[in-house]
Design a protein around this nucleic acid. Sequence first.
DNA 1: ATTTATATCTTTTTT
DNA 2: AGATATAAAT
Length: 750
Amino acid sequence: MNYIDELNEPQREAVMTINGPVMIIAGAGSGKTRVLTYRIAYLIEQGVDPFNILSLTFTNKAAREMRKRIEKVAGTNARNLWMGTFHSVFARILRSEAEKIGYTSNFTIYDTDDCKSLIKTIVGEMQLDDKVYKSSSVLGRISSAKNKLISPREYVNNAILRADDESAMRPKLGEIYKIYQERCFKAGAMDFDDLLFNTNILFRDHLDVLNKYQNRFKYVMVDEFQDTNLSQYLITRKLAARHQNICVVGDDAQSIYAFRGADIQNILNFEKDYPDLKVVKLEENYRSTQMIVKAANSIISHNKAQLRKSVFTSNEDGALITLLKASSDNEEGKLIAHAIFEDKTQKQLVYNNFAILYRTNSQSRSMEEALRKLSIPYRIVGGISFYQRKEVKDLISYLRYAMNHNDEEALKRIINYPKRGIGDTTIAKIILFADEQGITLWEVISNIGKFMSGRTADLIDQFSIIIKSFKLIIETKDAFEAASHIAKVSGILKELYDDKTVEGLARYENIQALLNAIKEYVDSEENEDKSLGAFLQEIALVTDARDDKDADDDKVTMMTIHSSKGLEFKNVYIVGVEEDLFPSQMMISSREDLEEERRLFYVAVTRAETKLTLSYATTRYRFGRLKPCEPSRFLTEIDSKYISTPQKSSGFVDSEDGSSFARLKLGGVPKPKPTQTPGQMAAKPYTPSANFAPSPTADLAGGQRIEHQKFGMGTILEVDNSGNDGKAKVSFDNFGEKTLLLSFAKLMIV
DNA sequence: ATTTATATCTTTTTT
DNA sequence: AGATATAAAT
């Protein structure tokens, strides 16, 4: 009970109102996670069986964090608590109720790559133009339909959707959706959205099942409620319909998943759906300084769609927000690395107090390089997951296929890997044939002799014999033994073992690591179900790289802003605050949703406790080309009272070999060579002078301590590049005046 | 069927 | 730049 005393008044109310519908509007840094965990602890203390509590989150990371904190407060009592992401919880329920909706319990979960690949084959089979029907946009369209619970049949009959598709010159989308759905079903597969869609179907068509779970989940809690989509909302509403003990926690200012169908409308609907709703607002920020809170407020105030909240803090004023200006993305990295180094020594902080946040995962590269040069340890959260690596996916595909012989996407990956002499045309033929005959893939493959003969038929037959043997193994051995056997017999292990290149070695190690992970899974007492199917189900939903390995090490954390939600750090560095990058070009052009980008910026800013640094570069590599960049409009939206004027960059840029160059009065950055299309006259000949675009120049200033490649260390006294002849006269304190030429002078910064 | 060369496209965030 | 698709050569 003592923990209740730590809470302020609204927090306490949020924790102790356990019966009836509750909506907690929780401003950034208002102790939301604490309230949620205490609320669960309080429920348990009031005699509620953890077995009857369902706590839903949005991301794996949030789920992990929550579980950790609950265990701290409630100890082992929390063991039986149902907690996880929407997808993992309902995948589990679907797995045990699969037969009711026509699936088997070992259904496959298709990841995004599988879905795209399936769409590609369907578009190919329908002989449509895959440039018009790009897999990513088709999938996006299907996904958003599913999130709104629009079935293929309803999609085709929906006049608005059809008009949309026709005006986008994609009239066949509804048909693709229909076929896609049939193919998934036939393959015994669900995509991410199906997990929610089919849960809705299950609860709609099987009231006994709904009843069972309604009775079971007496208390339902939803974190990050502003990020739920319609499909998720309806599931929770149904589940809570009996007991009405539903508690949602959210902040409309932090809604950043509209691209996944999240709908702020859910918050408004919620008040309508539950007339006796209790609304609690948490508005006091305990996390950040005055400066940061006020700056954040000034940012979010530019959004029209925002409601009913004024976040304030009684923390100290704190330092101004620092703005850094770099001449390139590499230099940006260097500035940030130096800033971290300095801040750490000055304030006596540890690396764990630092986070670098960016809009896109690809921005991590320049940061990484810079940190490595200064020997600053770091961890990257997110990025390419272990389970998305090619070799890992290959072995998993074997496991998947051994479990589910109709898994079309797994089959496509493995039937000719390692090489068996079964080519793409053969695979396409088999799939098409199965479809025409209305039989499953496995029926074709396992009886290939009935349908064709010849060398290829023999090869396919051999393949089917291997698969049959795998099935036997799975039925008799545990997940680890089965997986090791399959890795060996499939030939994957040998294939990678024979590859003696550095990458090959790494791939082999990754396979071993996967096998180890399976071993761990089997050995862990937490996992009751040790079957291969259970393991596969589990990892299908782990899309983020796991970071528990180095969680205790002292390291700077790097991640996208999206994955930073819910976290906090003493010092935060938001990099790449440039127009077209943040806000993202895509977001503005495709959905015209500047407000979501702004909320994202708000989320990033409010991660900081004591010090916030923003940076932008004036040039950045994009698709291998150096492109000029403008500072983001968001920078001008911050009240100037709270932010410093941009610090001038040092004028150094990096070369490919790692040495630093000083950028002197340079003509500009090279323009790309004009690509010549056949039939066109050759453009002007490529001459250096004509091929330099104007670009910002960063003059080398006196006082810089540098190392010259030939002459050694020195300090610059004066720079004279008035000659404008591509040369600059630079005088040094210890090796006199040197004439440095061309756009870059070879100088090493120290 | 497989390997190699060439062209094209990528350009967000996560389950 | 890097990944992926297409075309041509083996």
